[in-house]
Design a protein around this nucleic acid. Structure first.
Length: 601
RNA sequence: GGGGGCGUAGCUCAGUUGGUUAGAGCGCUAGCCUGUCACGCUAGAGGCCGCGGGUUCGAGUCCCGUCGCUCCCGCCA
């Protein structure tokens, strides 16, 4: 007999009846009836009911056991008495009659029970993460995470990709997120940085003549957390390919994403062919570059109906600036004054002056618009509006007006709110799309200059010679430039971002010059990259889907902490290990570091 | 850095208009209980009402400050 177990707690079936077995596990639940005592013994594999009664030599010990003690029990498998089988357990046909017990690991009183599904404060859950992980749901999520990553690896290998490892200690990069810095002992005053992503390394791997790179890569960014953004560290499925166009990247990655989702979605439908939505169109229809396509609402430009019309507020806005627009957010089924008023006060809560609306009613065989907007623009224009939007009695429409670049930040959430409140969102599915044609540059209001909109390594979407001939001071043209840059979005969550890279040094220099970076800066920050590009670089591109977000979606969780084994809290603290922590004076001395702490006020 | 929500027993929460001794369920301890699987029954222990200050005859409750957790904005190429 093995020292600890002959079977796992999920193994025994009626075929094992009569066998003498040894099980080890945690006392999940103890039910003491005085004369007979039941313990649900739990391990990674399942639950088995073990039983003792006063005839058992182990009864005295059994009575002393408490929840979450780790024990080894010996006993004989027997059929449960008729009518007491538990169909909810795979082992529910049998039980083990205990003949011996050894306590392997007693437990003090628990700060949070493992049994049951009650909610507990994050602080306690994180401090006692190992207890939380014993609970069924979290345990299952972590297992599923591993299975998903296995599946991704298999699919990538089958697609001809090869897994690489890139450095964790690297150089600080000037763009993007804040770096985590690591002081160098050997080089006083100098620092390594943890990679924000293996971006440059994967490009260098392509330039080094490899092809079809992938890695389940840890990424480190010293930025604040969100529910769907872990503080500090997270994992990406990092992908890069040589001699490819955008279509080739999509052709390689889309089947992997779809396959993984179909495998783990538990029967929920997955978009069979991801639609391509240009960035501009996404903003115009959905008010965001990460649309939730489960929400059927699409916005439309209805400016023409309001030009010179009786609704003075909108007419004036349209006259004030040729860029201004009025957009309509249709609300099928929202055609009641109560709903429209509720949306209006919601908008005011969001810091808006209000939310114009029309709702449609059936009256005397005609469909009529109601509400202040309808009254002011008149029945004819109201009906044209209704026809353009394809609405009927019982529906409503809301309006946002002004500079679309400004109001889009409100229109997107309004569309979401309407969809949710009217129950229009088809919850049980995974709705994917590609967002393409991102702008290359954007206007930085903070720095009052043109800056890269996303990745400075992306290739502009135009012929290199034409790009090289651009006038960098032609602001309108520059801001309209597109990059070969794309995102995968699923259910309103940005799953990944990628690009065809800029592999030409001359185009790279020009691209940085437009964003106001001198060649010196480019050389200082990306000298290695530039040298690599000038010594025979293949055209290449890739993408980097976020592993944690994929797992979160597939586990049906709203927060990344539910799918990460040992997550930090929102303030980037590890409450279990006590990180970050102070270090000794000796450690600091070796690193040539003296602290200059902020004064406490 | 800014905004919202929350903070009462180990945990989940209730606590009326400011009123006398702050409650319930789960958990814990003890006792009873031979077929439970959220076992049941009885009793008990357990409270700096986050912390500090203020208003008041009187504060868990009202006000100010502060700390913690969380969600969001900024930020995240």
């Amino acid at each position: 007999m093995h020292r600890y177990r002959s079977h796992t707690c999920g193994a025994l079936r009626d075929g094992d009846i009569g066998a003498v077995v040894r099980l080890s596990g945690w006392c999940h639940r103890i039910r003491d009836h005085g004369g007979v005592l039941f313990i649900d013994l739990r391990d990674h594999y399942g639950l088995t009911q073990v039983v003792a009664d006063p005839d058992s030599p182990a009864f005295k010990v059994a009575e002393t056991l408490r929840a979450e003690w780790v024990v080894r029990i010996d006993g004989k498998v027997r059929r449960r008495p008729g009518g007491t089988e538990n169909a909810d357990l795979p082992t529910g046909a049998v039980e083990v009659y205990i003949s011996g017990i050894e306590v392997l690991g007693p437990a003090a009183e628990l700060p949070m029970p493992v049994f049951g599904e009650q909610e507990y404060p994050e602080e306690i859950r994180l401090k006692y993460r190992f207890l939380d992980l014993r609970r069924e749901r979290l345990h299952a999520n972590i297992i599923k995470r591993g299975q998903i990553i296995d599946s991704i690896r298999r699919r990538m290998r089958e697609g001809g990709f090869f897994e690489f490892q890139t450095p964790i200690l690297t150089a600080s990069s000037p763009e993007g997120a804040r770096d985590f810095l690591v002081p160098s002992r050997l080089h006083p005053g100098k620092f390594y940085a943890l990679p924000q992503a293996p971006q440059q390394f994967k490009q260098l791997t392509m330039i080094a003549g490899f092809d079809r790179y992938f890695q389940i890569a840890p990424c480190f960014r010293d930025e604040d957390a969100r529910a769907d953004r872990s503080p500090g560290e997270f994992y990406q499925l990092d992908v890069e390919m040589s001699f490819v166009t955008q279509d080739d990247v999509f052709g390689a990655v889309e089947p992997v994403m779809r396959g993984v989702f179909e495998e783990f979605a538990g029967g929920k439908p997955v978009t069979p062919k991801f639609p391509l939505i240009p960035y501009r169109e996404a903003l115009a229809k959905y008010g965001t570059d990460k649309p939730d396509l489960r929400n059927p609402i699409e916005m439309q430009d209805v400016s023409e109906h309001f030009r010179g019309a009786g609704f003075k507020l909108f007419a004036k806005i349209l006259d004030a600036n040729p860029k201004n627009r009025v957009w309509a957010i249709p609300a099928p089924g929202g055609g009641s004054r109560a709903f429209c008023d509720r949306m209006n006060s919601w908008a005011q809560g969001e810091g808006q002056p209000g939310l114009g609306y029309i709702f449609f009613v059936e009256e005397g065989g005609a469909t009529l618009g109601r509400g202040p907007v309808a009254n002011n623009v008149g029945p004819e224009r109201t009906d044209k509006l209704r026809t353009q939007l394809g609405l009927k009695a019982g529906d409503a429409v809301f309006f946002v007006a002004g500079d679309p670049n400004v109001f889009v930040k409100f229109a997107g959430p309004a569309r979401t709110k309407i969809g949710e409140d009217l129950n229009l969102i088809a919850k049980d599915q995974f709705a994917f799309c590609w967002i393409v044609d991102f702008p290359m540059y954007e206007w930085s209001e903070e720095e009052k200059k043109i800056d890269f909109s996303h990745n400075p390594f992306s290739m502009p979407n135009m012929e290199p010679d034409a790009f090289l001939a651009l006038d960098g001071s032609d602001k309108d043209t520059i801001l309209n430039l597109k990059a070969i840059q794309y995102d995968i979005v699923c259910n309103g969550i940005e799953l990944s971002s990628g690009a065809i890279r800029n592999h030409r040094p001359d185009v790279m220099k020009k691209a940085f010059a437009i964003a106001g970076y001198s060649e010196d800066v480019l050389e200082a920050k990306f000298g290695g990259m530039l040298r690599a590009l000038s010594l025979g670089a293949p055209p290449h591109g890739g993408i980097a889907p976020g592993i944690d977000r994929i797992v979160m979606l597939l586990c049906g969780e709203e927060n990344l902490r539910e799918v990460v084994l040992f997550p930090m809290n929102q303030r980037a603290e590890d409450l279990l290990m006590g990180a970050p922590s102070e270090v000794t004076a000796k450690q600091l001395r070796e690193l040539h570091i003296r602290l200059a702490l902020p004064e406490k006020s």
